[in-house]
Simulated assay, not measured.
Amino acid sequence: MKTRAAEGGTGGVRRRPTLLSNAETWAQLAVAARIGPEAYAAVGTAAEPGTVLLTVNRPGPGPVVVEAPFGTRLGDVLHACGLRPGDSVLVGGYHGAWLGPVDAAGASLSRTGLAELGATLGAGAIVALPAVTCPLGEITRVAAWLAGESAGQCGPCRRGLPDAADALVALATGAGGPAGLEDVRRALGGAQGGGACSHPDGTARFVLSALDVFAPDVEAHIAGPGCGRPVLGVLPLPRGEGARLEVDWSRCAGHGLCGVLAPGLVRLGPHGYPASTTIPVAPWQEHGARRAVSQCPALALRMRRPERGPGRLR
């Protein structure tokens, strides 16, 4: 690790050499200082010595934190946690990538080994998706949440991620057709590399790798009613939902004013009706959402906000 000054920079806290890292890195430094570099390098790989902490999600018993040497096979970690690769395995959390069951079983848990498979170690979060849930439905839930987690400071987050989330909803419900898949790829392709932070890039990696790994499931949703599996919510999300805009179809007359007042939030279909009945509202979108609710001629919109206590809305 290097300080900014060592890398040739002049910045830092009060323009002084500054070293920032996470708690796991400081813990590893303490171990290396206590046992010495030779003993520390006795585990792991030559390029990446030592161990890594992994958070493995288990839908039944709950998540478990595992410490494993760099280079350990992912399949061995899953087996130790009582899991199997299932349909696929997510490595690196919601900014990570999906691996098919064969690749996942033999994947080396190192930055180099995962990069060879197009994945990343990221935060070390791992989820094995069971075969009993709908993969596309699970991805759609998380993509909508990621779109709402944006700070809304640049185009890829303001437009690209919400557009991709909407296209995924259409794809999962069978309304997107073959063009729906291209809509998702186009929205995320435009978001990659152009953001002010890594959020759009990480979200794109998460979704695009899923579209490749779960290609048969995606084709089932394009060709007909879908895969027939329910969406069980296996991929964990915060229990407290954010605000959302809801459309009352019994009142909506297709005026399209909501799309004008909140263009980054409400997407209108070809006949002027909102494309979604329930729309997640990010904090930076609330002003437009309130305007749309207050000025809807048919009184067909309402905002629902989280109450105190997990998972409750009013």
Rank of each mutant, 00 (worst) to 15 (best):
M1E: 06
M1I: 10
K2P: 14
R4A: 00
A6V: 07
R14C: 00
P17L: 05
T18Y: 12
N22W: 11
T25L: 11
T25W: 08
A27C: 12
Q28W: 06
L29R: 12
A32Q: 15
R34V: 06
P37A: 12
A39I: 02
Y40V: 05
Y40M: 11
A41G: 08
A42Q: 12
T45D: 01
A47T: 06
G50A: 00
L54A: 06
N57Y: 15
P59D: 00
G60S: 09
P61W: 00
V64W: 07
V66Q: 03
E67N: 09
F70R: 13
G75D: 03
D76W: 04
L78E: 04
H79I: 02
C81T: 07
R84Y: 01
P85W: 14
G86N: 02
V91H: 03
H95N: 06
W98I: 00
A104F: 10
A104D: 10
A105F: 14
A107I: 13
R111F: 07
G113R: 01
L114G: 12
A115N: 08
L117D: 01
G118W: 10
A119V: 09
I126Y: 10
V127W: 07
A128V: 12
A131E: 14
V132D: 15
C134N: 11
P135D: 00
P135C: 04
L136R: 06
L136S: 08
E138P: 09
I139A: 05
A143R: 15
A147S: 13
G155Q: 12
G155C: 03
G155R: 09
G155T: 15
G155M: 01
P156T: 05
G160Q: 06
G160Y: 15
G160S: 11
L161A: 10
A164W: 11
A165G: 14
A165C: 00
D166E: 12
L168R: 11
A175T: 07
G180F: 06
V184S: 04
R185I: 03
R186P: 01
A187R: 02
G190I: 00
G190A: 01
G190F: 08
A196M: 12
S198V: 13
P200D: 02
L208K: 13
A210G: 09
L211K: 10
D212I: 07
V213E: 02
F214V: 03
F214Y: 15
E219R: 11
I222H: 00
A223L: 04
G224C: 05
G226H: 07
C227D: 04
G228V: 10
P230M: 08
P230N: 15
V231R: 15
G233I: 05
G240V: 13
G240K: 15
E241N: 03
A243T: 13
A243F: 06
R244A: 11
G256D: 00
L257V: 15
G259P: 02
L268H: 09
H271L: 11
G272R: 11
S276C: 14
S276Q: 15
T277F: 03
V281Q: 02
E286F: 10
R291S: 05
S294Q: 12
S294R: 13
S294T: 06
Q295R: 13
C296P: 05
A300L: 03
A300S: 03
A300K: 09
A300D: 02
M303H: 01
R304L: 13
R305L: 06
G309C: 09
R312Y: 11
L313N: 05
R314F: 05
